[in-house]
Amino acid sequence: MPKKPVAAKEPKKQKKATVHKKAKSKREIYNVTAYSLGDGYTPSHGVTASGERVQQGRTIACPRKLPFGTEVYIPSLNHTYVCTDRGGAIKSGHLDVYFKSVSDAEKFGRQWIEVEVRQK
């Protein structure tokens, strides 16, 4: 008996691979200052330019060239902050870290330090 022709099987559909874009990372020296509510320069309402409440360990004021949500890692502090605020004096090359207490902000002062900007 002759063999029946076998129908070709459709190739299995492959799932698309999930591509995770790696964040662009750049290390630079920045003029980093500190601010706090009640320091005489900062509005006392505690709301950042992005609409979030200020939080120690998270909030950093960045120049406009860094979009809200940009992560800023400061190796000397071994900590990553998120750009959620702006400031009239915050221009290119300047960052302003939020501290809960005025005395901690004053102790931090002004430092020229290396930071790693991680843009998504």
Score class of each variant (00 low, 15 high):
R58P: 01
P2R: 01
K100N: 15
T48W: 06
G51W: 06
I74N: 09
K65D: 02
K13M: 07
G87H: 14
K16E: 14
A49D: 10
I29S: 12
G51K: 11
V19A: 09
P43K: 05
L95C: 12
I60H: 00
Y73E: 05
Y41G: 10
I74K: 06
V54E: 08
K91Y: 11
V32R: 12
H20N: 15
L66T: 11
P2E: 03
V117Y: 10
V6H: 06
Q56D: 01
D96S: 15
V72P: 11
Q14K: 15
T18E: 10
G40K: 05
E52A: 12
K3E: 03
L95N: 07
V97P: 04
G51M: 10
D39K: 05
K107P: 00
S92L: 08
C62P: 01
D96L: 13
V6M: 01
H20D: 13
L37A: 12
L77K: 15
G87D: 15
K22R: 03
H79N: 14
G93S: 12
A61S: 13
A49V: 06
K9H: 00
C83W: 05
E114G: 13
L77M: 14
G87N: 14
P63E: 00
P63T: 00
K15C: 08
K24G: 00
Q55F: 09
A8T: 02
D39M: 08
A105V: 01
T70G: 09
D85G: 09
K22G: 04
K26I: 13
F99D: 01
Y30M: 07
N31Y: 08
V117F: 09
A49K: 15
T33Q: 03
D96N: 11
V102P: 09
G51Y: 10
I60Q: 00
L77C: 12
S44V: 02
G46P: 09
K4I: 05
G87Y: 08
R118C: 05
V32W: 06
C83L: 01
S76L: 09
R118Q: 08
K22Q: 02
Y73V: 02
T33V: 06
Q56W: 02
A105E: 05
Q56K: 10
V115W: 09
Y30N: 03
E114L: 12
D39W: 10
Q119N: 12
L66C: 01
V54W: 07
